[in-house]
Amino acid sequence: MSSHKQIFLCAINNILSGTCQEDCKFCTQSVRYHANIERYNYKSIEQIVSEATLAKANGALGYCLVTAGKGLDDKKVDFVARAAQAVKANVEDLNLIACNGTATKEQLTYLKEHGIDSYNHNLETSERYYAEICQTHAWSERYETCENVKSVGLALCSGGIFGMGEEQEDRDALLDAIASLSPESTPLNFYHPNPALPIKTRNITFPEALEIITQARQLLGEDKLLMVAGGRELLFTHKEEAMFEAGANAMVIGNYLTTEGLAPNKDKEMLASLGYEVATSCDTL
């Protein structure tokens, strides 16, 4: 049995959906690919607080406020800050994460001052392979945002997506780049194909996914959160114990940005059946 007896749960809230102008070939939120997803402008603050309350009741310690789009602007910063303040005022002991694209130090400082604890910005793939999956912005902008996060004292959450046609050298380079940032948490996503997207198939197997988890744990150390996020249901259903044995100690519960996840109670039943506990405090890491 893995030494990580407690599993940390995180929930995602897509508070601005399907409005992105970028051309990331893995993302249904891009308007360029006309994927059949729900698209909407900002959710109400009341709805966000209500969904945060439910996430906490389901065992989530982390709650991520996600917006579509390349990065932050004045309107987006203001809305995320107001949403964060409202959640903090109504839901206790919830680690608030913002995931809003590229961001300056000034924008990140403002979010921190209004209740955001952590900022998620994924590197997605290696610097070498990035131009194959996105041409409207550079990989270096992603890395710079991650550096900005750390410089203002926010906790950094940064990971990537595997199975988008990359080579093994790209997977190694991505994990090395993530480790160079020393993030507090790292989400590992496994590509979920959609008929509307240019990347049609997923080139990753179950053993390869396990090796990525093992490699990430070795690079990041034992005291960090290593989360299996998007694509978990495609690769690890009924094989969850293997991902925890490989080094994962966190996972996303509920729905993802534009794809459905399992019901949180099913995940909690799975954890209990494997002898794991749901973590109740980040201090137990």
Score class of each variant (00 low, 15 high):
residue 132 E to K: 12
residue 181 L to G: 14
residue 191 Y to G: 05
residue 149 V to M: 08
residue 171 R to F: 05
residue 154 L to E: 05
residue 164 M to H: 09
residue 185 S to A: 08
residue 183 P to C: 09
residue 172 D to M: 04
residue 171 R to N: 08
residue 199 I to D: 02
residue 138 A to S: 11
residue 190 F to E: 13
residue 186 T to H: 05
residue 193 P to N: 08
residue 144 E to R: 14
residue 167 E to Q: 15
residue 168 Q to M: 11
residue 148 N to W: 07
residue 183 P to L: 05
residue 178 I to F: 02
residue 198 P to N: 03
residue 153 G to Q: 11
residue 128 R to I: 03
residue 171 R to C: 05
residue 199 I to L: 10
residue 195 P to H: 07
residue 179 A to S: 14
residue 143 Y to R: 10
residue 162 F to C: 09
residue 194 N to V: 10
residue 161 I to F: 04
residue 140 S to R: 13
residue 182 S to N: 13
residue 172 D to L: 09
residue 167 E to I: 04
residue 167 E to H: 14
residue 186 T to G: 00
residue 184 E to D: 14
residue 136 T to S: 14
residue 185 S to V: 03
residue 169 E to L: 07
residue 188 L to W: 09
residue 129 Y to M: 04
residue 199 I to P: 03
residue 163 G to W: 03
residue 160 G to F: 03
residue 166 E to Y: 07
residue 176 D to L: 01
residue 161 I to V: 15
residue 140 S to M: 00
residue 159 G to L: 03
residue 131 A to K: 09
residue 144 E to M: 10
residue 202 R to T: 10
residue 146 C to N: 11
residue 198 P to D: 11
residue 170 D to S: 06
residue 179 A to G: 10
residue 183 P to K: 08
residue 162 F to P: 07
residue 194 N to P: 05
residue 147 E to C: 15
residue 171 R to T: 04
residue 137 H to Q: 02
residue 153 G to W: 10
residue 142 R to H: 03
residue 197 L to N: 05
residue 193 P to W: 05
residue 185 S to Q: 13
residue 145 T to N: 14
residue 139 W to C: 04
residue 159 G to N: 00
residue 146 C to D: 06
residue 186 T to N: 05
residue 128 R to P: 04
residue 203 N to I: 12
residue 144 E to W: 11
residue 204 I to V: 14
residue 194 N to M: 14
residue 198 P to K: 00
residue 169 E to T: 15
residue 195 P to V: 13
residue 137 H to F: 15
residue 135 Q to S: 14
residue 190 F to I: 07
residue 143 Y to V: 01
residue 186 T to V: 14
residue 138 A to K: 15
residue 134 C to V: 09
residue 180 S to E: 06
residue 185 S to W: 08
residue 150 K to N: 15
residue 128 R to F: 07
residue 174 L to M: 00
residue 167 E to S: 10
residue 138 A to R: 13
residue 187 P to H: 06
residue 178 I to E: 01
residue 170 D to E: 07
residue 131 A to E: 12
residue 163 G to P: 05
residue 139 W to T: 06
residue 165 G to C: 12
residue 163 G to M: 11
residue 161 I to Q: 03
residue 152 V to I: 15
residue 193 P to A: 01
residue 146 C to L: 06
residue 162 F to E: 10
residue 133 I to N: 01
residue 184 E to F: 13
residue 130 Y to Q: 08
residue 196 A to P: 15
residue 179 A to K: 02
residue 131 A to V: 00
residue 157 C to Y: 09
residue 131 A to C: 03
residue 203 N to R: 13
residue 181 L to Y: 11
residue 131 A to R: 08
residue 151 S to Y: 12
residue 163 G to R: 03
residue 176 D to P: 01
residue 141 E to C: 03
residue 134 C to K: 04
residue 178 I to A: 02
residue 204 I to Y: 02
residue 200 K to I: 09
residue 181 L to P: 14
residue 149 V to A: 10
residue 140 S to D: 12
residue 155 A to S: 12
residue 180 S to Y: 01
residue 198 P to S: 00
residue 201 T to F: 09
residue 153 G to P: 12
residue 162 F to A: 13
residue 147 E to G: 00
residue 141 E to T: 12
residue 159 G to W: 00
residue 137 H to W: 05
residue 202 R to V: 10
residue 173 A to P: 01
residue 154 L to D: 11
residue 139 W to H: 15
residue 195 P to I: 13
residue 155 A to K: 13
residue 158 S to L: 09
residue 154 L to Q: 07
residue 138 A to Y: 13
residue 173 A to N: 09
residue 181 L to M: 12
